[in-house]
Computed example of a mutant assay.
Amino acid sequence: MSETLPIHLPGAAMDDPNAPGRKEDHIELAFDSQADRDGLDERFDYEPLLAAHPLPGSYGTMDWGGKELRAPLWVSSMTGGTEKALVINHNLARAAGEFGLGMGLGSCRSLLYDDHRFDDFNVRPLAGDGVPIYANLGAAQVQRLLEDGDSVLIPQLIDSLQLDGLIIHVNPLQEWLQPEGDRFTAPPLESIREVVRLFPELAVIVKEVGQGMGPASLKELLRLPILALDTAANGGTNFSKLELFRSDALARMAYAGLTRVGHSAEGMVRQINALVAENPDEVRCAKVIISGGVRTFLDGYHLTSLSSLPAIYGQASALLRHAREDYGSLQRYVATQVRGLELAKAYLRPRL
């Protein structure tokens, strides 16, 4: 009986110094890697045969008000007017510029009459000219500017920061629950319509602040010539709930139920789709930002694929967590989100 000789193939384990350790890891980790059959993500079909591994930057681009997004991810409005806000906003702006993301600033109300915190919001030099960045004012403040004849302060604010447009956040429940909150004396829709009328060239985005909007409100926004509506759905940061934490015990008990009122991101996307299909000739709103409980790139990929209008997705708390101190941490997080989107597009087919 002849002796069996060892087989040595180029590229086999003998040529890979890491192979023994990797194989040991596989053996040990196999027991911890058993999949739960009840935990399958039913939103996608996984198609492993149809694409090569995606190259960086392969997701594709989208026009956003004349500027280019290199990834369908929006830095949702967060903060301004505090010491911490400067670090946060500057880190976020650097990431927006590096990865080609859009960005909404936190409320710019403090800059209307006082430039003391101007540097918190002056992020254009960090992001560069190529990405869209938007100012942000509350509907109550917009109403006040219109009533006082100070609407010219809106374009002045945008020009001073070299921004691309305005986000109007609509937050009646937050204002009601905020100890020092404003009171609406007119429906927010009236103020939005007047801004659009006064400044027809201004790119406007309208959003809620963590509870979403119902079909009647969505229908009215879809009829307006605005750049986008932002779902800001219930499921992410809920500013009504945030304000309750700042209130006394009686208010927390009395109004707690209001924090559970609202609409999910997926529910709103499906409602928008139905409204668009019902009256396509009435739709003048161009795009959708899907935010509120969008925690991962898989959530974002699924929801943007579901939308019949061109859509991107927004995140706030996930980005905030990494932006507070260390840009390197934020940079790594955004890179994983963008590469994850590219991987999802290559191998996952959304079940719509």
Rank of each mutant, 00 (worst) to 15 (best):
V170G: 08
W176S: 13
A203T: 12
L177C: 03
L166N: 03
E180R: 08
A203S: 14
R183Q: 15
V195G: 05
L189R: 12
G165T: 01
T185I: 13
E175K: 06
F184T: 00
P179W: 03
F199A: 06
I192R: 03
N171D: 14
L198N: 11
G181Q: 09
R183P: 00
L198R: 15
W176I: 13
P172L: 02
L177F: 06
E180V: 02
P200A: 11
Q174S: 00
P188D: 03
G165F: 00
V170F: 05
Q174A: 01
I192Q: 01
F184L: 15
I167T: 13
P187T: 13
L202K: 10
V195S: 00
L177R: 00
E201K: 14
A186I: 01
I192N: 02
Q178R: 09
L189M: 15
I192C: 05
L202T: 04
V170E: 06
E190A: 15
L198S: 11
R197G: 01
I167G: 10
L166C: 07
P200Q: 10
N171K: 04
H169V: 05
L166F: 07
L202S: 09
P179K: 07
A186Y: 03
R197W: 00
L166E: 04
Q174F: 04
F184W: 12
P187F: 13
P200M: 07
P172G: 08
F184I: 04
H169E: 09
I167V: 15
P179Q: 04
P172I: 02
V170I: 12
L166K: 00
H169D: 10
R193G: 10
E175M: 07
E180F: 00
L198I: 14
E180L: 08
L177K: 03
T185A: 11
V196I: 13
E180P: 04
L189E: 09
V195A: 00
H169T: 09
T185C: 10
L198D: 10
G181V: 02
Q178G: 07
E175I: 01
I192F: 04
E201F: 06
A203N: 15
V195T: 00
L173N: 12
L177W: 02
D182M: 09
E190R: 14
P188V: 04
G165Q: 03
P200V: 05
E175P: 04
L202E: 09
F199H: 05
V170L: 08
V196F: 04
L189H: 11
V195F: 03
W176P: 07
H169L: 09
P200W: 07
Q178L: 07
E190T: 14
G181L: 05
E175Q: 11
A203M: 14
S191I: 02
R193Q: 14
V170N: 07
R183M: 12
Q178Y: 08
L166R: 03
S191V: 03
N171V: 06
W176A: 15
A186S: 12
I192M: 08
